[in-house]
Design a protein around this nucleic acid. Sequence first.
DNA 1: GATCCGAATGTAAAGGATTACATCGGATAT
DNA 2: ATATCCGATGTAATCCTTTACATTCGGATC
Lengths: 335, 335
Amino acid sequence: MPTIIEVAALAGVSTATVSRVLSRPEQVSEDTRLRVLAVVRESGYVPNVAARSLRTLRAAKILLTVPDISNAFFASVIRGAEEAARDAGYSVVVGDTRHDPDVEDQYADMLSRREVDGLIFLGHRLPASLAPMLSRKGAAAPIVNGCEYSPDLGVPSVHIDNAAASADAIEHLIGLGHRRIGVVTGPEISPISRDRLAGAIDAATRAGLRDSLHIRIGDYSAGSAIDHTRDLIAQDVTALFCFSDEMAMGALSAIGDAGLSCPKDVSVIGFDDLPLARYFQPPLTTIAQPKAMIGRRTVELLVDILHGVDSPSRQVTLDHELIVRGSTAQPASAR
Amino acid sequence: MPTIIEVAALAGVSTATVSRVLSRPEQVSEDTRLRVLAVVRESGYVPNVAARSLRTLRAAKILLTVPDISNAFFASVIRGAEEAARDAGYSVVVGDTRHDPDVEDQYADMLSRREVDGLIFLGHRLPASLAPMLSRKGAAAPIVNGCEYSPDLGVPSVHIDNAAASADAIEHLIGLGHRRIGVVTGPEISPISRDRLAGAIDAATRAGLRDSLHIRIGDYSAGSAIDHTRDLIAQDVTALFCFSDEMAMGALSAIGDAGLSCPKDVSVIGFDDLPLARYFQPPLTTIAQPKAMIGRRTVELLVDILHGVDSPSRQVTLDHELIVRGSTAQPASAR
DNA sequence: GATCCGAATGTAAAGGATTACATCGGATAT
DNA sequence: ATATCCGATGTAATCCTTTACATTCGGATC
């Protein structure tokens, strides 16, 4: 693998010129440019990234951490982020933290060490070791959050209006005639779970049905919804609102195990609109998040920070959509 | 952020000594070592990776490409790989190729450019641009495959015995009494799909039931199984063997849509044992692959190559397991 | 007491690219 | 004809670390 020195020699120019041909071609005369490019092509020269990054103090990489890479929701966000990053000349390093603070810190160190230029974290927990970076005055820290807006973090973020989305779900159920509704939330510590819960309660209250909500705390995983569903069925709810499609899947499973059927006996509504949601049995009514767009916008926000553009919008709210499929229907009582 | 020069000055030693303290501590006297470490700790010194990698020509990174990051199967493999990589002092860069050869090549370039020390690719397609690297004589190319063993590639790989696993599935169905069995495969180009198909045919043939198999070509996605399932139901199959759990999910959905029920009317068996498989309705009988272990072993194989250990086993076959859940039962005719 | 050895440490080159600054030559202005 | 300017290119410093080789020094050997 040739170095820039050899390319320069072959083309009969200095290394500076070769470098310019590659990074600022307009500064070089056409003659020289073509000659150098020809040599580059023939020799298969590729700039050494370590040398470049040593000199420029830039890595052209963005670190994207997710709490759980096996979660299909995050997978779609990652895709959107990768696309946008590629457009901006960055590549994405994906890190799976498994909800483990130690691993989070390890990844965060990559930022401190400047192995990557910026960090996007999905989920609600900002690695502890980055706090100093944020509080530092001056240029904004190259850190952006996706999905889990947490105002006190002081980090730009991209998310939907979770309260409004949740209200839509509840209104849908109330509109169908449901008066006993189970709600399975995310963990209490999750800001978006709180927002969704607040939105749900608001919507019920507005309809004069505050007491129709039966709330259980889950953790977004299918397993966590099982017990709650069993329990809520015993409380005679006619509908279930789960704060993730995975939990909705658990709910459907528990409903079947109880010898009941969805939506005849119990309606179920999820959250996320995973690619598989349409293949649930019955196909799942759910709130769709613009997953790829969330990924894309987080990257754009981060790139703005990296390029010193101080973007006017540090909080980006994207649109959600209620997707009505077969898992919600009128309760038996209304038929 | 201090450099090694400042640390050396503070500790009253040369940069060489600081470097040794960090990488080969046994070469340094205890006194000096402790003094330097103290300074390192206080100053928060972290070696600059770009400079190090420039000097050593190593990046301490492994690139892991997957054809589709939203596939839950790959997610588990990635986890295993990350763990093993961490153990070996490497970090993992995950790349999602979306089955796009251009993107594959882009990632492969990271290897040519030495941005990463090695490449693990899941799936069956080796990026074209890497062919020269493989054919080069001498040290083995730092490339390992996971999941999709393809003998002609000449790349070390880790996988299960797909033919045997598939035979297990067919034998299970035959043992239950099924005599008309639909098989929904992966794409024809996929070597593991071919292996599984061969295994299925073998098993059926051994049982004298070669003609009981009704084969349809899918693409591992839930959507692709829908039409095939409808079609196979029309052919009066009593059981379906899908080469992925996702397709099994599509099959279950199509069975429901047809007004039939699983396993009463049609048994379904999948492949992979995704985390969600147990929450399918009914819980899915499937072939479990040791996903995390596949990830781990690919990394170990790669690290051996990187360290010049020529490992005796260039092909690693791991154990699979048939997990019987609720989606398979005797056919109605046998009851 | 001279010689040798080895452990501990230092010196300085090397790794490859970028870029501020210097230089050169020709075109334009006066 | 001379001064000025500008575009194109070259020179060389710089980014930070690692490591081959050199040096130093105390102790063992003869």
